[in-house]
Design a binder for these strands. Structure first.
Lengths: 222, 222
DNA sequence: GGATGATTTTAACAATCCATTTATTAACAA
DNA sequence: TTGTTAATAAATGGATTGTTAAAATCATCC
């Protein structure tokens, strides 16, 4: 079942969310402020984060920004009425939803379900489109200008990981860890070779795969 | 009119169900526990089974599993409040509905009607066609170029699951879990063997089953 | 309840495919 | 320019899947 991280400095809020989320069968973890949230996210993966805005040490906006630098996790924001309300809409990272305090736990859970569903559907049937490049992750299918392209397993895995983390700088170490697995003890350059083959498979859309000299690679697109 | 099998060790329950089902014009047969239910199902066909979970000799889960091995009869489960409640959701066989004791007989009958209706609709219209390959899931029938093909149970199950999830990449683990059941602790390659036999059965339409190297299989068609 | 036949699973081998390494060339930045 | 980093190409060893046969399990019939 999905894992939730609830980030809020008020015990009462965390407890209410935990109670309801438990009941719905979600796995819940807590953080007391933005700093803690960022730390926890370094070692653990969540399917969704519920984050308060006003918190000591590190506020919700900054924390989200920090976390999103590394992982594309959906985030629901909690905001007191009026407080920082405007910022939500100008927020660059693109939060997935927001709920105004005081909120009904049932409504919050409904939002969580909606966001999770939206995201899982995206992972499933949805075809991601970047100009003439179509990527169907659930169907393991890649189409270039209407033509189906067959790739090797590693090419698929690599492309999907890049796309799932588009616009994020990814080091070779990170790619090896995530795409190859933590138990891979090979050469860094292996990534290069696969990037090359992937670029060949993508034809003109190789342009989406950007080399970050001295760093790694990035899938750059909207 | 539809035939119902009510399986429960409490006389009171069986009597109440019989009374209401009689009134609605259903034909009713009774079994006192899972073992009896399995036996009766060997010789007689029912349109729906209402099955208690907690019973002497053979519990409702095991009995359902046993019966479903041979026949695809819709099953409504009866469970005492709380008791085994969780299991219902993790139950792989896919029960059609469940009712918590103590239940209102009227509600139970409504569920029975709903399930019967749902199933009869499915049984009728659901013939999937992929060129010369016709698949009637509810009727457990597969036709290749007008000729009915007989397959082994596992072949049917595998084909149906693939078709129900067409165009979706399915790992061997997923297939084992969904087609074989969560309690199967065998070899991954068992899937391969069954895929091969299935391909043989499908003749030229084997083309719909594509191998996803490094991943699993997929039924690819529109 | 044991024998028989059908089905399922495992195991082994063959065929194919592809991941990684290595070597070389090209591109870049100081 | 020069040292560093990335792109490319080719070879081989390993991994994955297809296929077959035999063993194990299950179901059914006397």
């Amino acid at each position: 079942m999905a894992k939730i991280l609830i980030v809020d400095d008020e015990d009462k809020i965390r407890n209410v969310v935990r109670e309801y989320a438990d009941f719905e069968g979600y796995e819940v973890e807590e953080a007391r402020d933005g700093m803690e949230a960022v730390d926890i996210c370094k070692t653990k993966d969540f399917d969704i984060i519920i984050m308060d805005i006003m918190m000591p040490r590190l506020d919700g906006f900054s924390a989200s920004k920090e976390i999103r630098k590394k992982k594309q996790i959906p985030i629901i924001m909690l905001s007191a009425r009026g407080e920082e309300y405007d910022k939500l809409f100008g927020f660059e990272i693109g939060i997935d939803d927001y709920v105004v305090k005081p909120f009904s736990p049932k409504e919050l859970m409904a939002r969580v379900r909606a966001v999770l569903k939206r995201n899982s559907q995206q992972a499933q049937g949805d075809v991601l489109k970047f100009e003439g490049l179509e990527i169907n992750i659930a169907g393991r299918e890649v189409i270039v200008d209407g033509e189906k392209v067959t790739m090797t397993p590693k090419e698929y895995d690599l492309l999907f990981y890049l796309v799932k983390n588009k616009n994020l700088a990814l080091t070779r170490e990170k790619l090896l860890e995530e795409v190859w697995g933590f138990d891979f003890y090979g050469d860094d350059r292996t990534v290069d070779t696969h990037i090359k083959m992937l670029r060949n498979s993508l034809g003109e859309y190789r342009k989406f795969i950007v080399t970050l000299r001295g760093m790694g690679y990035k899938f750059e697109a909207n």
